[in-house]
C-alpha cells in the first residue's frame, strides 16, 4: 500500500515537473520569437547590408554551441537565449528586405510566417496529444542534418536553384522531425532544462521559416 502511494506520488511529481518545463519552454519561446520579430524589424529599418545575415548566424551558432551550455542552469542562460534569438532575428532583416522588394514579396513573407506557425503548432499538438516517444528518431535526424549541411556547402559553390529547393524541402522535413523529437523529450523528462529546450525549438522554427521563404521565393519567381 505504502509502496503504491510512493509510486503514485513520484509519478505525479515527475508529471508536474515535466508540465513546468513545458510551460516555461513555451513561455520563453513566445517571448524570444517576439523579440526576434522586433530585432528583425529594427534591422529592416536600419537597412542593414546582406552580410549581416551571415555574421548573425555565425555569432548565434557560436553562442548556442559554446556559451549557452555553460550558463543554461543559471539565470544568465535566459539573457544568452535572448542575445542569440535577437541576433538571429537581426540577421533576418536584410533577407526580409530583399523578399519584401519582390512583386509578391509581402505574400511570400506572410505565407512563410503563417506556414511556419501552422507546422510548429500542428506538430507540437500531435506530439502532446499522442504522448508518443520519438527518441528513436534521434540518430536519423542528426545524420540527415549532417548530410544536408554537406549538400548546402556544395551548393554554396555550385549555385544550382533546383538543389537549393531540394535542400530547403529536406530541411523542413528534418526540422519537423526535430519538433516531434524535442517535444517528446520534454514530455518524457529527457530534457529538464527549459532554456536548452527553448533554443532547440527556436532553431527548428527559424530554419523552417528560412526554408519556406526560399521555397516560396523560388516558386514565386516561376509565375
Amino acid at each position: 500500500m505504502n509502496r503504491s502511494f510512493t509510486t503514485v506520488s513520484q509519478s505525479s511529481t515527475s508529471a508536474l515537473a515535466t508540465n513546468k518545463v513545458l510551460r516555461n519552454t513555451y513561455m520563453l519561446l513566445s517571448l524570444t520569437l517576439l523579440f526576434s520579430g522586433l530585432t528583425a524589424g529594427l534591422s529592416m529599418f536600419l537597412n542593414m547590408p546582406p552580410m549581416t545575415y551571415m555574421i548573425s548566424v555565425i555569432g548565434g551558432m557560436v553562442l548556442a554551441m559554446f556559451v549557452l551550455p555553460r550558463f543554461a542552469h543559471s539565470s544568465a542562460g535566459i539573457g544568452i537565449v535572448f542575445l542569440i534569438t535577437g541576433l538571429l532575428g537581426f540577421g533576418l532583416g536584410p533577407m526580409l528586405t530583399m523578399y519584401a522588394s519582390l512583386p509578391n514579396g509581402g505574400n511570400i513573407i506572410t505565407l512563410s510566417l503563417g506556414g511556419t506557425g501552422v507546422i510548429f503548432l500542428g506538430l507540437s499538438a500531435y506530439a502532446l496529444a499522442t504522448r508518443k516517444d520519438f527518441s528513436f528518431m534521434g540518430g536519423f535526424l542528426v545524420v540527415g542534418f549532417l548530410l544536408v549541411l554537406i549538400a548546402a556547402i556544395a551548393n554554396i559553390f555550385l549555385q544550382i536553384p533546383a538543389m537549393s529547393l531540394a535542400i530547403s524541402s529536406v530541411v523542413i522535413l528534418i526540422m519537423s522531425g526535430f519538433i516531434l523529437y524535442d517535444t517528446s523529450r520534454i514530455i518524457h523528462g529527457g530534457e529538464d532544462n527549459y532554456v536548452l529546450a527553448t533554443i532547440g525549438l527556436y532553431m527548428t522554427i527559424f530554419n523552417i521559416f528560412i526554408s519556406l521563404l526560399q521555397i516560396l521565393g523560388i516558386m514565386g519567381k516561376d509565375e
Binding site: 505565407l111 506538430l123 519537423s176 516531434l180
Partner: peptide
Amino acid sequence: PMVIIILFIMFLIQLV
C-alpha cells in the same frame, strides 16, 4: 505527419 506537411507546402506554393 510528414506527408501532411509535404501536402501543406504544396498548398502554400499554390497560394504564392
